[in-house]
Write a protein that binds this DNA or RNA. Structure first.
Length: 714
RNA sequence: GCGGGCUUAGCUCAGUUGGUAGAGCACUCGAUUUACACUCGAAUGGUCGGGGGUUCAAGUCCCUCAGCCCGCACCA
């Protein structure tokens, strides 16, 4: 027996050594698996944002995925776990801009586009390196030879091709629409990047002018200088007689031309039953404006300041609001002022208050029938595979959430006014335009200009399952590994990302991107609070791994953690599983010490035959759990078996047998102990890869690495 | 407003197709030059949120009520 078993298990040294050995073995690459007979099994790692370091949620994801991958590899599949990182356009640019502003007092405009992008690239390079090290520390057995980045050259080709294909299919269009403008980030954001916040506000009820017949209510009086109509319900008896009338008035120093229009969307019961329509600065008003052919003058600019001439000019919206209210009071037009709680839209990344503005942006039409796809729309292409069960979402109830989201989906705004990211692949020269690839030759010299905007980061990560496999090139990997098997990610990004991947894969390949979506919950602190910088309650995965070992961290993230449910994690919990790793170590020590002269083929006693049979049942049971993604159950069963059954019961019973007079019984027991240990190591390997591999390589009867052993149950 | 989830031992949570209520931690008592620095055994602890129903049988299925949480939409 190796001397190392006389001391407690020491994870730190073991883990670094074994990860290196695995990498050098080539087994992380499915092309090198000697006994793979069952075809491919593929998981694309959700690329962590290149903005920083991994948190416990990433570690949870890596662990679950790696468990699935190692399980399938042991079963004989060509397991591919493809790693990568995400350039996370807005988040990354915001991060670097903040650093530059803090350290150098400069803005992005001081640096210029080229220099800023260069700085961000530099930052991202360092950040990606950190992330790579962290992923390795978790034990993730991913194929580094296929590593990808959402903003590298290969992915840029994919993005441009995707854009072109969608453009050619008439799905991508440029249009003047009311968009979510983030004055803080100075960019458009999509509907999904908005977070609603409750704040106290006031509802003002007033008339535009003394001789105006209808009273309206609003919480944003400052926008009223942009009003072009008052909308009422067509059947509202109070206002029926005014419909169609037009009025010229003066409002707070600005001339207004107001038309009374009828629109079904107006609720007669709310406020006065009459809505002042500001088409340029509210989504609903924009739609009313479209239906009634109203002009939509913009009165608020990109810095959230009033842009009309007059006393309000140049004021921030909050200042302008006070001024308008003051004016209303002076003119005796204000009928009431009531305190309300209102929901404010803010930008997820920057916290800026969203200002709806009309802007010329690129959109993806989600309702247009697509000829090449049987006249189905993108919405239908997203719904269909989930409805039919071709894509199975775990936990099941999330499919309802998914349908609900798609049914409410509007056209996807994909252009962003930031500098870091895939630039919109459209070049223009006068009336001419080219989409997809830059015009041949020195296009700049020939007067071509590329669109200034960049693309929403989810546009590039949407093609992750196949851009990573070589698309749009004819790539053998694409045919071999796509559709992928499992997409494992946080339930938070079901819409952001999972839905977009389904959209893109369905559109461009006509196939699903993955068969199973496994959604994990949030990792919270021991009190159930979210990890946050301000609370300082974060648990750093690397610290935990150094302290307790990756195996302990992995299994503590899995046991008792069902898909879709948040979990509470404490150091005590992880400590308990460090003890478990050591328990396996000591089980091995006992068995090796007492079975040096083992004959592995010794005839079994009846009792020992039963032990092996019940282990076989356990293995079958665990296999079923793994295949049904009940990892939490499989892990718990193995833990119980190893500790209560093998260690506390079987080994205790073995002591008298091994030292007793019955040589046949002793020989049988020795063989059985060795057999049970060996197979238990295989079953536990996906969960605790390091300690099991380390023990495996110390068993005299094993050859080669555990990572490519054979799973003991069909 | 629409949708979803949770409520099981002091704490954290499992409980997969309905079939004798479980684990870890904590607590109490005991064992022990012991494979175990991180050990073992035993004990304590549950009207499975309340009520109703289906069933031979319900923590599990159905209805209903309550509390907590989350997502989406949003009122101008």
């Amino acid at each position: 027996m190796d001397e190392k078993f006389k001391k407690p298990y020491e994870p730190a040294e073991t883990e670094a050594r074994l990860y290196k050995a695995w990498e050098e073995s080539g087994y992380f690459n499915p092309d090198n698996l000697p006994n793979a007979t069952k075809g491919p099994f593929t998981i694309m790692m959700p690329p962590p944002n290149a903005t920083g370091v991994l948190h416990m949620g990433h570690m949870l994801g890596c662990t679950i995925q790696d468990i699935m991958i190692r399980f399938r590899r042991l079963q004989g599949y060509e397991a591919l776990f493809l790693p990568g990182t995400d350039h996370a356009a807005i988040a990354t640019q915001a991060r670097v801009e903040k650093d530059i502003s803090k350290n150098e007092g400069k803005s992005r405009h001081d640096l210029g586009r080229e220099e800023l992008v260069r700085r961000i690239d530099e930052f991202v390079e360092g950040s990606r390196d950190t992330i790579r090290k962290q992923i390795r520390a978790t034990g993730a057995s991913c194929d580094w030879s296929r590593e990808a980045f959402t903003f590298d050259e290969a992915r840029n080709r994919a993005v441009n091709q995707m854009f072109k294909d969608m453009y050619d299919a008439g799905l991508i269009y440029k249009g003047l629409r009311i968009v979510n403008w983030d004055p803080k980030g100075q960019t458009t954001i999509s509907d999904d990047e908005i977070v609603h916040e409750e704040r106290p506000g006031k509802l003002y009820t007033f008339k535009y002018a003394k001789d105006f017949p209808i009273t309206i209510a609003t919480s944003r009086p400052e926008t009223k200088v942009g009003d072009t109509a008052v909308a009422v319900h067509p059947n509202d008896p109070r206002y029926k007689e005014f419909i169609g009338n037009e009025y010229d008035l003066e409002f707070c120093g600005s001339p207004l031309h107001i038309k009374i229009v009828a629109d079904e969307s107006v609720e007669p019961e709310f406020g006065t039953g009459a809505l002042g329509v500001t088409p340029a600065h509210a989504h609903i008003d924009w739609e009313i404006g479209e239906r009634n052919n109203l002009p939509h003058p913009q009165v608020i600019d990109e810095r959230a300041k009033i842009m009309v001439e007059g006393p309000l000019h140049g004021l921030k919206v909050a200042e302008a609001r006070e001024k308008v209210v003051e004016w209303l009071k002076e003119q005796n037009l204000l009928e009431s002022e009531v305190s309300i709680t209102q929901n404010i839209s803010t930008a997820e990344r920057t916290g800026g208050v969203i200002e709806p503005l009309p802007k010329l942006q690129w959109f993806i039409d989600v309702n247009k029938p697509i000829k090449e796809r049987g006249n189905k729309s993108l919405k239908e292409l997203m719904l269909e595979p989930v409805r039919s069960g071709a894509i199975n979402i775990l936990p099941d109830h999330y499919d309802k959430t998914y349908y609900h989201w798609i049914e409410n989906l509007r056209d996807w705004c994909i252009s962003r006014q930031i500098w870091y990211g895939h630039r919109v692949p459209v070049w223009t020269r006068g009336e001419e335009s080219v989409v997809g690839d830059a015009p041949a030759g020195d296009w700049k010299a020939e007067g071509w200009v590329q669109d200034e905007d960049t693309l929403d980061t989810w546009f590039s990560s949407g093609s992750w399952t196949f851009s990573t496999l070589g698309w749009p090139n004819e790539a053998p990997d694409l045919a071999r590994f796509h559709p992928t098997d499992v997409l494992e990610t946080a339930y938070e990004i079901l819409f952001f990302w999972v839905a977009r991947m389904i959209l893109m894969s369905q559109f461009v390949l006509g196939e699903i991107p993955f068969r199973t979506v496994y959604l994990h919950g949030l990792v919270r602190d021991a009190q159930g609070r979210k990890f946050s910088k301000s609370l300082g309650n974060g648990i750093d995965p690397i610290e935990v791994i150094n302290k307790f070992g990756a195996d302990a961290a992995r299994i503590s993230l899995v046991i008792g953690n069902t898909p879709g449910t948040d979990m509470k994690l404490s150091e005590d919990r992880i400590k308990g599983y460090k003890h478990f790793a050591n328990k396996l170590w000591n089980i091995t020590r006992f068995i090796l010490e007492n079975t040096e002269d083992v004959d592995l083929e010794a005839p079994r006693t009846e009792a020992d035959f039963t032990l092996e049979a019940s282990f076989a049942n356990l293995a079958a049971d665990v296999t079923k759990d793994m295949e049904a993604y009940r990892l939490y159950l499989a892990a718990d069963k193995l833990y119980q078996y190893a500790w209560s059954e093998l260690a506390s019961t079987i080994i205790e019973e073995s002591k008298p047998i091994l030292s007793g007079d019955d040589a046949a019984a002793a020989a049988s027991r020795k063989a059985v102990l060795r057999a049970l240990l060996k197979d238990l190591l295989i079953l536990l390997h996906p969960f605790m890869p390091f300690v099991t591999e380390e023990i495996w390589q110390s068993l005299p009867e094993t050859e080669g690495m555990l990572i490519v052993a054979q799973w003991p149950s069909a």
